[in-house]
Computed example of a mutant assay.
Amino acid sequence: MRVGLITDDPGHPLLAATAALLAPAHGVQVVDPAAPLGAARDPADVYLLKSHTPAALALARDLEGRGAPVVNSAAATALCQDRAAMAELAVRAGLPFAATRSVDALGAWAAGASLDSPVVVKSRHNRRADLVARAEDTAGLRALARDWPDEPVVVQPFTANSGWDHKLWAIGDRVFAALRRSELSPEGRGPTLPLAELPPGWAELTLRVGEVFALDVYGVDVLATADGAPLIVDVNAFPGIRDQAGAPEALARLALERGRPG
């Protein structure tokens, strides 16, 4: 089977390890996401879409149009780049997702807003070096707005927590977990979390997210609320999933399962 990796970072640990597992018996090709549309005259049997740039999404749509399976699909990947659409779908599906308000331009909204409790402000469009910050009060919100006046954002109430996020990842039906310092309190990585130590039902919740968002490889950021209930604050298509034993094997197996028969 021929497997294409759509990425601008073929040395990423997860991709490199997966490619090494596949290479002895299968062809593995790195595909530049900026390659001209139609450059692949003979599409591979399956593609892994690790890049989320507009060019990568356009390439993935082109390949899908020619019958090539892409993991994750261009549509599912694009949905996860829009945090407002993400929240809307999650709530509609009954997932425990953080209350999310969409704002067209942070500066104009902050000028008239008044906060009586902290909020988390995130760029609406998920990308590298986007905005993810906590505003304690109205003054803090306006300080953010001075730096990001025209940024479309989503705003979520800040949920009191320990400062640790539960990072849950899925590759097909395999779930992985770890603790990570929140982006709002970045003091370093936490340990891998054995699934047996997850609260009851959280692994099943992770797989439910995949069903709702039509994702095969994804991450779910979850906070434990004061009563221990899970609160989803973000969903990511094809995240890094670093340092998780068994992840490359699971990804290699998934690629072969999703590939077209030869």
Rank of each mutant, 00 (worst) to 15 (best):
G4E: 00
L5Y: 04
P13I: 10
P13H: 13
L14K: 01
L14M: 09
L14Y: 03
L14F: 06
L15Y: 01
A16M: 10
A17G: 08
L21P: 06
Q29W: 11
R41Q: 03
D45W: 02
L48R: 01
L49R: 00
K50F: 11
T53R: 02
P54R: 04
A58C: 03
R61C: 01
E64D: 03
G65A: 06
G65H: 06
P69H: 03
P69D: 03
V71F: 00
A76P: 01
A78H: 05
L79W: 04
Q81L: 14
D82G: 10
R83A: 07
A85W: 10
M86K: 07
A87Y: 06
R92N: 14
A93K: 09
G94S: 12
G94T: 13
F97S: 08
A105T: 09
L106P: 00
G107C: 02
A113F: 03
A113N: 06
A113M: 08
S117T: 15
S117F: 15
V119F: 08
V120P: 03
S123T: 09
R128S: 15
R134Y: 12
A135R: 02
A135E: 02
L141M: 07
A143C: 12
A143Q: 09
D147E: 14
P152L: 10
V153L: 07
N161C: 13
W164T: 13
D165I: 05
F176N: 00
A177S: 06
E183S: 15
L184E: 07
S185V: 14
R189L: 14
A196L: 09
A196G: 11
A196P: 04
E197K: 14
P199E: 12
T206P: 01
V209Y: 01
G210W: 00
V212I: 12
L215N: 03
A226D: 14
A226Y: 15
G228S: 13
I232Q: 04
V235Y: 02
V235I: 15
P239F: 00
R242E: 15
P248Q: 06
R253V: 10
A255L: 07
A255I: 04
L256F: 08
G262K: 13
G262D: 13
